[in-house]
Design a protein around this nucleic acid. Sequence first.
RNA 1: UGCCCGAUGGUGUAACGGUAGCACGAAAGAUUCUGAUUCUUUUAGUCAAGGUUCGAAUCCUUGUCGGGCAUCCA
Length: 560
Amino acid sequence: MSTEEAPKLDFMRQIVADSIAAGTHGGRVQTRFPPEPNGYLHIGHAKSICLNFGIAREFGGRCNLRFDDTNPTKEDVEYVDSIKEDVRWLGFEWDELHFASDYFEQLYDWAVQLIKQGDAYVDSQSLEAIRAGRGTATEPGINSPFRDRSVEENLDLFARMQAGEFADGEHVLRAKIDMASTHLILRDPLMYRIRHAHHHRTGDTWCIYPMYDYAHGQSDSLEQVTHSICTLEFETHRVLYDWFVEKLGIFPSHQYEFARLNLTYCLMSKRRLLELVEADVVSGWDDPRMPTLRGLRRRGYTPESLRNFCHDIGVTRYNGLTDMVVLENALRHDLNKRAERRMAVLNPLKVVITNYPEGESELLEAVNNPEDEAAGKRQVPFSRELYIERDDFMEDAPKKFFRLAPDREVRLRWAYFVKCNEVIKDADGNIIELRCTYDPETKGGNAPDGRKVKGTIHWVSAQHAVSAEVRLYDYLLKVEDPADIPEGDAWREALNENSLQVLADCKLEPSLAEVSSDMAVQFERLGYFIADSQDSTPEKLVFNRTVTLKDAWAKEQKKG
RNA sequence: UGCCCGAUGGUGUAACGGUAGCACGAAAGAUUCUGAUUCUUUUAGUCAAGGUUCGAAUCCUUGUCGGGCAUCCA
């Protein structure tokens, strides 16, 4: 047959491929991404989005976006708009847009059906009594005293629940399954609770709202979902999912579970992220340190890098911990190809080229992106006074230090070879200026006599430079495995108090004054940066460091 | 003490009873006007014990370890 190797399928795609091969549902593939509109999407959701939309795309299927809005007290339109925007930004478009709340009427009718079948009943116990009656993992639960109400009484009570005759908590509707089941989920799970609350879409039409387990599978069924993909913590719910499908005799959607994403040094629970926002630990949901899609976007992550990352980590049923560097590498890989290079000095050290004529300047040609010839070239101004990075000079330099030091020669990127002759210090002994000489013969960066230099450093012309604030970010957590963070309030101690470092007066080459906030740039030898979409203005430039470049010298230094 | 699920180099994954492979990391080297990129090489693994089989990471049994499940959350 084909000489081409079959693409390796993860277990989920294998399931889909098998069901197509078996002709299940006529070989049709329908998935859905079902977020609850109670928070912003994060990188963990990206994995699910890439899986659901990716499978539909790869197998000629369809994927819906469905908001699981069954809890009016937690949900808000603010979130539905942002979720839509984030899904699109990631690069996906849904076939149909739905809300679980669109199915409230149907869900109600089905509940009536279950009552009539003797498969559901109204329980009038208190919350505490229901909880106590559930039993434990090792002891069976006990039947509610209301479990054997007649169908007529149940129908009447349920109708009156819906009509608003009762206060919150007075009654609930429960599925009548088995209070002694070894699956705790089957111990007469709640289907409806009374909530006199305003719903962001249905307004005050309803005062009873379905629980997740009663709404989710049926919503899938109504949308003819063939593969209902969710994370492992819903695994134990599958038996109930199937129970409703069977009792109702509706389209048999099937649930498949995969392991959610865990990342080192990264908080992923919506609850914790919300706490960070509310406690002003971060500036908001879009703080560049947040793992939210909005945060990542503002930080400078590209949708491509996120999609590639999701592909790289694969899909399994093993609950692992992915190293953050995998994410960062996916990002570097993408940015390396697309980001134009610029020169910027984060911690400026003044350099005077003593043999360069005073008051003069010239334009030198620099390549925009060595990985992409089409990116072209630009002109960079050079003059007598420059700034270089403080880290690029050492007074007592070890042999392995390839940068500037007394009597050592380095190349200024795209410019000239310079040699350091004199170190000027202030009264406290701090180095405040370097006196260097340049070799005019080396213009452009090459010596006609063929001599080599070991190092090339970046620079900016002092008189032409633009000033900017640059924000350097580090992980939000100090602990590698977020699962090690204790429950309760102590988790705050796991926060990295140095996750943000602001450099107030950095010096950038002039072309950086007009770079837009949707274009990543590489500050040569430092990393990838992006103008901050919220705070950067032509008057006050603000750049975010998206990610550093790999740094072999830093690694060498760490070795000692 | 119940039920469900999982376990392959440091990490993430592949191998569908027949050569344990890939990526990231790490180490060494080459190239380089970014100590970047790129390229080469090396490193290191089937949780344990039994069983089935000509042959087991794969199938069976038992054990060990890890995760999930007892919100009127999703």
